[in-house]
Amino acid sequence: MCDALTLSSAASKPQKIARPERRQARAGMALFAPALILLVVILIFPVTVAALLSFTDYTLGRPGISWVGLRNYVDIFSGSSYRKMIVATVLYVLIVVPVSVFLGLGAALLIRSLKVGQSFYKTVYFLPVMASLLAMAIVWEFALHPTLGIVNRTLAMGCGTPVEWWSWFAHGCTEGFPLWLGDRDYALYTLAFIGIWQSFGFNMVLYLAGLTSVPSDLYGAASMDGVKRGWERFRLVTWPMLGPTTVFVVTITTIRSFQVFDTVEALTHGGPAKSTYVMIYAIYQKGIAQNLVGLGAALTVLFLALVMLINVAQRRFIERKVHYQ
């Protein structure tokens, strides 16, 4: 009786049936649609475009376009300036990542051990993360100015003091201290130093968060189990418990260092002698400044492949090693 009543009223006004599932499905698609379209247009489509253009000799403003196969890639791997690009990029990443992660962890551990002044150091070390990297790069350039800069002026004050037993220092006193950004032997290391200076505070903050999530009972258990020295405690509890944080910190620092651009563009233009010719700068210079779009696109594809590889490696590593489930 009851059923029949419902049925008849439903049949007479089919559009009035409340179907929460269908309504939800429609709303869900509608709400996600703008994001979907934009993700495809802004991220997916350009990747495809880059992949296609990397096989052509396309340049902006010229009507013709022709298929050149793998020539752009061959050029990259055979040219000496591109070899320098790989060397500069990889060297930069290999310096910045370990040092910045290690300093971030060290600062976090030291700050956590303090009885007073925790927030002071946290604030100070985080400042570079906030400040515009370009502005600070220009300041560093001035601080490292061969004659006007505070760094070489301070170093010069050490001349004539016992510090001169260090042969590098003595050499600086007689021959002049390094030009830093203007010297091919120092430029990349100087940029790496600025990169570390800017990024380790971020890692510190992530490590501090990681440290607060280590259950304090574990330290109690370690004490009861016979752990007395700080180093043993670090090895048994802190370091393993920071595993997920470390993987994340290493990944994000790696990807960010691969993208170094501001300091290179503003301070060295990839020089001297291409010693700081890093990948994103090469993409910018070839693909946009010199309008060699095909070449730039090929570099883009290589760069993306590299970033994807790091991300996949991270995921694998996290799943296997550090989540302990």
Binding site: P215, K228, P240, M241, Y324
Partner: peptide, 28 residues
């Protein structure tokens, strides 16, 4: 604490998540 010759069972168990059961029991 390590020198008091006491053993403790914690409310949260405080097991080392990265070690196996055997390794956990063996730690002390």
């Amino acid at each position: 604490a390590a020198d008091r010759d006491l053993a403790m069972v914690f409310q949260s168990y405080a097991l080392y998540p990265h070690l196996t059961v055997a390794e956990n029991i063996a730690v002390p």
